[in-house]
Design a protein around this nucleic acid. Structure first.
Length: 268
DNA sequence: TGAATTGTTATCGT
DNA sequence: AACGATAACAATTC
């Protein structure tokens, strides 16, 4: 399930072959997930040069010269691959981009949740996203302000893309464990030292995961090795790497959640 | 068979 | 009324 580190890894992987290329054809075999519609997007991008390949939150952003952009969200199981010459097409191809150098980028997605959306105004289209947690401006004070502005359980709050962009289920659990905070802690109950630890934990775990090219837990996302370093996610019943206490699985806001009851005591 | 997964939307409760 | 919690949903794999 691509979160910020996986999307960042994908963007870095496709950028060299995509940057500066002109799109000569676009097609979708699941046009339901193309906004505002296949023909409109085709009209908007065919003949355009890709002036930027970037990431915003969990979106892959193909930027054009005039501020228009194509946003690709991989949701649960989407991936971007390059078509290989004379090789059979990989399974679950949902959308294709043909480039002026003969390259062909594929959006593959078993579950069909992935989306492609075109916007004339990238800033407007991403206005609802919270700050980038790895950006320079994301200071402990900024995080503290976001937490204090609401009174919500920490985990659902951190998962809310309008609050912070890019965290998903894996790295939220990992950041909370590293910060020694329970996922159910009310967001307005943190002291300055807690906020500072959470801020550092979020950034450290995301940076480490990017260095590892993300987490590969199953068939969905191959290539990364962060799964070896996860401390709680998917480790229910296994000993905490810090204190040896068995990791406990619980459900928070319909999400599978993993905590060490000793390192992350419940507080309220 | 049911659980798991993301993010949006609708709905319910305080 | 505004906010937060909750549920349903899209579709597929194991």
């Amino acid at each position: 399930m691509p979160e910020l580190p996986e999307v960042e890894t994908i963007v870095r992987a496709v950028r060299p072959r995509l940057f500066g290329r002109t799109i000569v054809a676009f097609d979708s075999r699941w046009p339901k997930n193309v906004e505002p519609g296949l023909s409109a997007v085709r009209r908007a991008v065919v003949g355009r040069r890709v002036a930027a390949v970037a990431r915003r939150g969990k979106y892959v952003v193909l930027g054009f010269d005039d501020g228009a952009a194509l946003l690709v969200h991989l949701r649960m199981s989407g991936r971007l691959e390059w078509a290989a010459d004379h090789a059979p097409e990989p399974p679950h191809v949902r959308a294709t981009w043909d480039l002026d150098d003969g390259g062909r980028l594929l959006l593959c997605d078993a579950r069909k949740f992935g989306r492609v959306m075109h916007t004339r105004d990238l800033a407007a289209a991403t206005a609802d996203l919270g700050p980038e947690p790895l950006a320079r401006g994301f200071t402990p004070d900024v995080l503290g302000g976001l937490l204090r502005a609401r009174r919500r359980q920490l985990k659902p709050l951190l998962l809310d893309q309008r609050v912070i962009a890019g965290l998903g289920n894996i790295y939220t659990d990992e950041a909370l464990h590293r910060a020694g905070l329970h996922p159910l802690t009310p967001s307005d109950r943190l002291r300055a030292a807690d906020v500072a630890r959470l801020h550092a934990a979020i950034r450290a775990v995301l940076r480490e995961a990017i260095r590892c090219h993300g987490t590969s837990l199953d068939w969905i996302y191959p290539g990364g090795w962060m799964q070896r370093r996860l401390r709680v996610y998917g480790r229910t019943g296994e000993p905490c790497r810090t204190c040896g206490t068995p990791i406990v699985g619980l459900r928070v806001g319909q999400r599978g959640t993993h905590v060490c009851p000793r390192c992350q005591p419940r507080r309220r």
